[in-house]
Design a protein around this nucleic acid. Structure first.
Lengths: 294, 294
DNA sequence: TCGAATGAATAAGTTTTACTTATGCAATGT
DNA sequence: ACATTGCATAAGTAAAACTTATTCATTCGA
């Protein structure tokens, strides 16, 4: 099982392509003597002649020609994949689509650092609108979404698992945290459009009768729900890490003494065919990186 | 247009495959520090992160994963072609089939040198028999034959061009060489089975009436023709380089004062699918090599 | 026929790449 | 609190890659 040095194979391929050690040397920007010595080493290592040295001329042996075919193919593959992934590309727009809360609460604080690091990438965040129709979705390069499914296509990766927990403003609780799930029944709750079944799941999970879900205002998005909660309008199911800044500042607090949480899985999908686009991959990697720090 | 060092790509592929610098180091029989440094160099050169360093764990970035696909494929191709052509193989029979004159006059003197150089190759020469049926031809690995065609399939290569010239024993000419083609008419000629049209072509080429081709004995092969000529039975059309030993020893001489020659092209065919067989390629290369010295 | 041109081979030396050793750092587990 | 794990880093060593100078052998052209 022989494994010749790869650098020498590059030299062999150039010599075989040119049928000239001198021309290969020019191609590789080295001297003819270096080519000659490397080919000799390779032939000695492999135990076979690869070239016939005719006067002032070179021809490949059968073995050499067969080997050149394979080596050329492999090196060409390397060049192609390297160029696809790492060529210097012009300024390029990358569109990430997600909910407004993910955009504003999670991505927004990180965007400055991203742009400082990748000034040539025009990163554009587009928020999902609950009224958006499907025809708009396909123009995003990367989409962040929630899913309860276990498997997805090859372009979709798990991003993070959100912890969903009842939160309210610290003022509305008078410093008294609730003890048991039933204590929620005496409070107003805030519903979020598009996430109506969160409360349903929460009541079911903690053994309450879903027919008794308190009525309360409905917010258009998590952002409005936060706003309403801060105004004292009730309890909403907040998603960490997106609301972490509010929890850390103390403006919002968890309602119960102990964690009574649900979970939701967030995924990131790169649209088909874009895995070889360098800039999209950079954004994708960046998203994975900040998610890993949560 | 970036062209990373190939050795570093080998390290990258191992690290990506194992998702561990330490395991890659074991695989490549180098240290973890070497792996770490090479990956850092590669990332710096390409301008992209290929791995996410999680604690005591490694994951590939999207870019890294896409690159690994391509690099793995290319390196695998190199390994495969190298193994196919250069693996240490057991003792193997290689069969070369050709005419008896090529076998005895041309190959035979070279066989000892070949076997000294390649002791593990069991080179077997099989002669073409004029009565051989086609079913026997396919068991030879390499076949040497004459052809007037300009192009052949990809497994056939030109070997040498034979010079065909009238020769006889030096005694039968009483040291007097013939001057013009017509002088042949007063002599006996020797015909060779399977090559009957050589004299026909010679008469046509040099402006003689083919109806006047002298009759004479017919030999079964060039070897018998040489034998008959040495016995003084006439002139035959000899093929160089096969009869060169006789010309050099003076036992045979060219009949005319100046060259009145025909030519015949000899080719060598490797049977389909055998170009990746190392030993057959070695024999094939050897044949090309001795042909090149003629 | 002789000298020039050409292009691969070789030896000795220099430069660059690849690698090692020793150590540091940070997260995790007991 | 300490041990384990596995990547990162700095400094030094070893090996590969390369250069320069020269030789060799063939072919071509005057």
């Amino acid at each position: 099982m022989k494994r010749p040095r790869l650098n020498v194979l590059r030299t062999f391929e150039a010599a075989g392509r040119h049928l000239s050690f001198s021309k290969a040397a020019v191609d590789l920007n080295i001297t003819q003597a270096a080519v000659s010595q490397q080919i000799r080493q390779l032939e000695s290592y492999l135990g076979a002649r690869l070239f016939l040295r005719l006067h002032r001329r070179l021809s490949l042996t059968s073995t050499g020609a067969a080997y050149l075919d394979g080596v050329h193919e492999a090196l060409d593959r390397l060049n192609t994949i390297t160029d696809q992934l790492f060529s210097d590309r012009p300024h390029q727009v990358v569109v990430v689509r997600c909910t407004s809360s993910v955009a504003l609460l999670w991505l927004s604080p990180q965007i400055r650092a991203f742009k400082a690091k990748h000034p040539y990438i025009d990163l554009q965040i587009r928020t999902l609108d609950t009224n958006a129709d499907a025809s708009q979705l396909h123009i995003a390069d990367i989409e962040i979404f929630v899913s309860g499914k276990a498997d997805h296509d090859q372009f979709t990766k798990p991003l993070l698992t959100s912890v969903i927990t009842p939160v309210a403003s610290s003022n509305s609780l008078d410093q008294k945290h609730l003890s048991i799930p039933q204590d929620i029944l005496g409070l107003d709750v805030i519903h979020i459009l598009g996430y109506e079944d969160d409360w349903h799941r929460w009541f079911q999970t903690f053994g309450l009768d879903t027919a008794q879900i308190p009525s309360g205002m409905t917010a258009d998005s998590s952002l409005f729900a936060i706003d309403a909660a801060l105004r004292g309008e009730g309890v909403f199911l907040g998603r960490r890490p997106f609301i972490d800044a509010y929890l850390q500042s103390g403006e919002l607090v968890e309602v119960f003494k102990r964690p009574l949480n649900l979970h939701a899985s967030y995924f990131m999908r790169q649209h088909g065919g874009s895995t070889n686009n360098r800039n999209i991959n950079i954004v994708s990697d960046w998203l994975l990186e900040i998610a890993a720090t949560e």
